[in-house]
Design a protein around this nucleic acid. Structure first.
Lengths: 212, 212, 212, 212
DNA sequence: GATGAATGAGCGTTCATTCAT
DNA sequence: AATGAATGAACGCTCATTCAT
């Protein structure tokens, strides 16, 4: 956690440090991001940095948790419009869309989040990672249970497995987007995403139920 | 490419260097793997290492290409039993199984291969990566085309997208396996993999065709 | 160029680094001068060195340019007393004297300058070298032209050749001095230098002109 | 000194080692010439090298002495045609010519010889260097004495100084040649050299003597 | 609290030389 | 005598972190 000193900073200064850290972690990953570059770009003294954060790790955890929180809020907001929605597949489509929109609007934050998966041997991050993943799959699980109750999807599935599949399907769409950022996104990513949703959706559908 | 000196080495020594490099690259990734540790574990002089390889990069490329080749051979061999198979879904299932088996039997090699995706800003590796991915999706594309001809799957799909989806679906099974190596694998990974194959398969199926 | 950090240093420290670098480059030449020895003798941390200079090359270029500038200033100052002098030979004698005095008073700086001629295959230094040499011969050329106008010296000479000859004649006096530093200099070097000036001077003289 | 083993080698092999060493020492200088490159180019085993020579130093000394001897013989032969010559200036001109011709015909050998002057802190080489220089100046001294006796040149000179001057004048012509090897040599170097000889010669001439 | 200079363990790499066969 | 693999001290350089002001 950053120190009180950091939080007492003028917002402008504080945000500069945060923004620069995000963009560097996004661009280079954890290991290749250098404190020296952060402080130079943020125009603060090196000593100051260590009065704000315990160490590099501390900064990264802070940025990471911030990214998770920002994303969580974004998704929640986007899903508001789906309140009352009864159809699982429309729900899932909405979730995918929300995730994609978040990434499109917060490219660097999305990159930082995806980079967590690339950090090895950091026990500490494993916990964050696990929590973050749990948060992503828990929502899906809840919906899957309802969908099964409603006979929307087959009942012979392992909910944990499927939630993970749906979750990772989305992650891959995001990866695809982040690695090909030059693509004229909205136009190209949507059909790609929709197709995946459709295919997996079809596969999950309870064929005995008449589509409403 | 390693030097002639390296290839002239006694197999035992040569393999020791290779195995240790694989396990370190697998465990720590490229950047965090240190030559110092490799030579210490392999019980060779630092100078010797540099008589075997141009530099760290050279070693990594060698290991990477080796992993790709070993995997390629493994998959080819496993797919032999599917020769003459006409059903796309059984084919794909076989491919998934082959990939999983490779990973189970070559945990570290599989990890090295997955790690390539985590290296940032290495133009050289991008080429290897792209080739490797192409090799994985090309096979699927070929089959998809046949499957469409045979009316097995819907014809309104973008073959490139779907091949990529099927490919990445498999990658995710592998990632799941590699990150949870402690799981009693064969028993747990199989149903997981099968379910994915089944769901996506169902989604792709041409419902107008009567299943044979 | 050294960093701002270096220039912000206390003069004593800064000069210590400079002096030690000069004496090592003078004594051992570029390749054999080790950063490790510089930092040990200057009593600074290795890391500090790299906060002052980009690399070894950067340090050397700095020292070299410094030497060139110091010499330039020295020569200018010494030549002040010759302002208004009309006789070419007295001019040249003065220039030789100035160069010798500079070397005597700045032995190591002079050695560093002579060492540049001994560096092989360093494109970068070739430019510095050429500039430095040009600076040395240009002055002579200017005077030669005037001397010819004044009928002081024969007009059938190639000014470029002769300027180079006079320049190198001086370089050799300096080399002689630097390689035999133990000689009780002022007493021995002067007659040596004067003789050279006299001989070459005689050879250049326009014998048709009556000496004033 | 090379070992007996080296001298027992077939001439072809022996000469290959020598030639390659010469060309590398000439091109890169002592420090930057690597044993590894020599043995690779000469196609001998590294172990063999150390059975021929004590160490790198030993090889260099051998090459150096060889160069000195070859040059000595060359000069002697060239000066044969000047036997009986009574005029000092024609003698000196001939010596200069001989030196230039040697360099033109043995570029690499000449380079090695000039490189000796660029080696620092090798007590051993200082001796070789001094001997080599002595050999060059002794001949000139001998002639100077005769020339003075014959009233060809002024008697008020320090023979040691002047011999050194004449010697170094020649060295500079050679340096000029070696550093500008691309110049269409014979045509350009001759007038350059002749001019120097003429000028210094004129300066040395005893003007009271009637020219024959 | 801010500053920026100081630190040093550790990295990848080089190369003359030795050693075992 | 020939081979070529083995050695390791030493190099230039990096960078997260600490310290003195």
């Amino acid at each position: 956690m950053p120190t009180k000193t950091f939080f007492n900073l003028a917002d402008e200064k504080k945000n500069k440090v945060i923004e620069i850290s995000i963009s560097l972690f996004a661009e280079r990953g954890y290991t290749k991001t250098q404190i020296t570059e952060i402080v130079k770009k943020a125009d603060i003294a090196k000593g100051s940095f260590y009065q704000y954060f315990d160490d590099k790790n501390d900064l990264f955890k802070y940025i990471l948790n911030k990214a998770i929180k920002v994303k969580e809020d974004y998704i929640k907001k986007e899903l508001k419009s789906l309140e009352g929605e009864q159809n699982f597949f429309r729900y899932w489509k909405g979730l995918n869309k929300a995730n994609i929109n978040f990434a499109l609007e917060n490219l660097n934050l999305a990159r930082v989040l995806r980079n967590v998966y690339k950090i090895k041997n950091f026990e500490l991050f494993k916990i964050i990672k696990r929590d973050y993943e749990k948060q992503g799959t828990d929502l899906i699980k809840k919906w899957l249970i309802i969908a099964i109750k409603n006979d929307e999807i087959k009942s012979d599935i392992n909910i944990g497995y499927i939630a993970h599949l749906l979750y990772t399907a989305n992650c891959f769409i995001i990866d695809y987007l982040l690695e090909n950022e030059e693509i004229d996104t909205q136009n190209k990513i949507d059909p790609y995403a929709n197709k995946i949703v459709e295919i997996i959706g079809n596969g999950l559908k309870n064929s005995r139920k008449k589509e409403g």
